[in-house]
Amino acid sequence: MRLLFLLVMVLLSLTAAAQRPEECYDDSDTLLIVGGSLINSSNYMIDRSKLLANDTVFVNMPGLTVENFTVSAFALGQKLSVTNAGNVLSEDVLEQLTNKESIFKFFYLKDVILRTADGRKFAPSTKTIKITFTN
């Protein structure tokens, strides 16, 4: 009976090992370039004018690309939640965050969906980066 239990446990652990990806993805590999600078912090403060159209979310791991990510912002009585295709901020979102009348003081970059080189979906990054505007 004991032998059977051990056998089942060994089989279970082998199955789990087979399902695990070869390389474990670490959320600290999700990075962001804002205003030409690499952001490696979950809470970052910048001047609004420094947010640019070519700012990028990327992963520091060969073979993985960002398929899309979500921008989520809150203001008094307003909420913005947009999924950006690709790894750059869409023009519409950028305009809403940086125009002179913008009332959003901060936004989150989250739900980063990743894809492997051969087109398979990879485990999503659970990292959330908060960008707070100083102006």
Binding site: F74, A75, L76, G77, I103, F106
Partner: peptide, 26 residues
């Protein structure tokens, strides 16, 4: 954060991951 005049909810941190801070422009 609730509007004192009409009791409408302007911000609820349970929709924002129970954040302990909120910044806004008036």
């Amino acid at each position: 954060l609730i509007d004192a005049e009409n009791e409408s909810t302007l911000y609820d941190n349970s929709e924002d991951g129970f954040a302990s801070e909120f910044e806004f422009t008036v």
